[in-house]
Design a protein around this nucleic acid. Structure first.
Length: 366
RNA sequence: UGGGGCGUGGCCAAGUGGUAAGGCACCAGUUUUUGGUACUGGCAUUCGGGGGUUCGAAUCCCUCCGCCCCAG
C-alpha cells in the first residue's frame, strides 16, 4: 500500500523502548496511532515469573504519555499453538527451531495484522530494526504487494533475519520506522521524550516468553527426559546427557564433561538418544560449505542461480557470499553453496538470503 | 605381594625445598528479540592418609592405602 494512503496505524507495543519510540515517531509524522499490546504468553514457569503484566503496563504508560489510543489483543491460544507447540515439536524431533521467526510469520504479521485491519487500521507498525521499501515508491501508484524488506541501518541491531518469512503483502501494510535509526539514537529519543520505557533494559530470550533458558522451558513443558550417552569421535562414551533433545549443534556448555579441551556437540541421534561431541574445532562435522533448505519463502522474487547473494545462517552472524544451486531438485528445497566454511549449521534454524541490503527470503536448514 | 610407575579441586594437568600455573567443567555476569557461539569474573589455606626432617615441603625420609604396567 502506498505510504500516502496510510492514515490509521496500529503499533505493536511490547512495553520496550523500541516499540515505544516507534509509536512516538509515527505520531510525530502525523499518523493516527493506536497502541496495541499483544498478550501472547502469561504463564509463570518454575523460578521465573512471566513479566507480561509489567510489560503491558509499560506499554500502556507510554500510550498515555503520548495520548494515543491503546488496546490489548489476546493471542495466547494461537501463540501457544503456532509458536510454542511448533517449537516444542521441533525439539522433540531433534532439530533446533527458531520460535521468533515463527512468531513474526504467524502472530505479528498475520494475526495482529488481520485483527488490526479488521479493526479499521490501514497498517500496523512494529519496533523492528528493519526497513520496508516500495519498488517504484516515487510513483505512489505502485501496485500492492510491491513492498520489499531491507536490513535495518544499524548493523548491530538489524533484525531482518527474523522477518524473512513475512509476506510482501503483509509488508505492504506495515511500517518499521526505527529501521532507519541506530539503537543509541532510539534510546536518546526515548529519553528526550521522557518515555517511561527510556531506560528499560532490552528484552531477551524467547519472544514474549521472556528470559527463560530453553532447557528449563522444555523441562517445564515435557518433563524430565531419558538420559543417554555422550559419545566422542572414537566412539567412546565420555559422559551422560539428560535428554538428547536439549542439545544443539555447536553447543559447548551444559555437557558436564571436562578434561583437556572443550567439547562441542557435532550431532545427535534421537532414535538412539545419543549425543556426539568433539574437541577438534576442525572436525569436519562442525563445518559446512553448503546448506540444504526446505520450507522456502521468498518475499518478492526467488533467487536465481546466475548471480551471487549473501546468506546469514544465524542471527547477527556475518553475511557470507553464496550462490544457489540451479537445476533439478524438489521444488520446495534449495541448496545454497557458500563461499566459506560455516560452523555449526543447525537443522531447524533458518538461512536467510540477502541481495545487498534486501532480504530475498530463505528457508529452514535440513 | 619380584621389578617399575603413579596418586595435585568434578576432569586433564604444571610444579622435585620457599610458601599451589594453566585448560576443561561448573557458577555468576556481559553480548544477543531463537537455540548456540563469544567475552569477563569466580572457583584447592591445600597437594591419597599418617608420621618425621627442615626456619620452611606438594616437592626429602618412613609408613599405610589405592591404582597402573611388566614379570608371574
Amino acid at each position: 500500500m502506498p505510504l500516502k494512503v496510510i492514515k490509521k496505524v496500529y503499533v505493536g507495543m511490547s512495553g520496550g523502548v523500541d516499540s515505544s519510540v516507534t509509536a512516538a515517531l509515527l505520531q510525530q509524522q502525523g499518523y493516527a496511532v493506536t497502541g496495541v499490546y499483544m498478550k501472547n504468553w502469561s504463564q509463570d514457569l518454575p523460578g521465573f515469573t512471566c513479566p507480561w503484566k509489567e510489560d503491558y503496563q509499560d506499554a500502556k504508560r507510554v500510550a498515555v504519555q503520548l495520548g494515543i489510543a491503546f488496546k490489548m489483543y489476546d493471542f495466547e491460544a494461537e501463540y501457544r499453538q503456532r509458536v510454542v507447540d511448533y517449537m516444542v515439536a521441533g525439539y522433540q524431533a531433534g532439530i533446533t527451531p527458531n520460535p521468533d521467526i515463527m512468531c513474526n510469520q504467524e502472530v505479528k504479521f498475520k494475526l495482529f495484522l488481520q485483527a488490526a485491519l479488521d479493526d479499521g487500521a490501514d497498517a500496523i507498525a512494529t519496533g523492528h530494526y528493519a526497513r520496508i521499501v516500495y519498488d517504484g515508491a516515487d510513483s505512489l501508484a505502485g501496485s500492492a504487494g510491491s513492498a520489499s524488506l531491507l536490513a535495518g541501518l544499524d548493523p548491530n541491531k538489524d533484525q531482518s533475519y527474523f522477518l524473512y518469512r513475512v509476506t510482501a503483502q503483509a509488508l505492504s501494510h506495515s511500517l518499521m520506522p526505527i529501521g532507519d535509526l541506530q539503537k543509541p539514537a532510539v534510546r536518546a529519543l526515548a529519553k528526550k521524550l521522557g518515555l517511561a520505557t527510556a531506560e528499560k533494559k532490552d528484552s531477551q530470550g524467547i519472544c514474549f516468553v521472556g528470559k527463560v533458558g530453553i532447557k528449563d522451558f522444555l523441562l517445564a513443558e515435557l518433563g524430565p527426559q531419558t538420559p543417554g550417552p555422550i559419545v566422542d569421535p572414537a566412539g567412546k562414551t565420555i559422559g551422560e546427557h539428560d535428554g538428547a533433545l536439549f542439545y544443539t549443534i555447536g553447543q559447548r556448555h551444559g555437557l558436564d564433561v571436562g578434561g583437556g579441551l572443550p567439547y562441542y556437540v557435532v550431532g545427535k541421534d534421537m532414535a538412539k538418544n545419543e549425543v556426539y561431541v568433539t574437541t577438534d574445532l576442525q572436525d569436519g562435522r562442525l563445518w559446512r560449505r553448503d546448506v540444504r533448505l526446505t520450507s522456502l519463502h521468498w518475499i518478492n522474487q526467488p533467487p536465481t542461480a546466475d548471480r551471487p547473494y549473501q546468506v546469514r545462517t544465524r542471527y547477527r552472524a556475518p553475511l557470507i557470499g553464496c550462490h544457489v544451486r540451479g537445476g533439478a531438485g524438489p521444488a520446495d528445497q534449495l541448496t545454497v553453496l557458500l563461499d566459506d566454511d560455516v560452523r555449526a549449521i543447525t537443522p531447524g534454524q533458518s538461512a536467510v538470503l540477502y541481495d545487498g541490503p534486501r532480504v530475498v527470503g530463505g528457508g529452514i536448514v535440513i
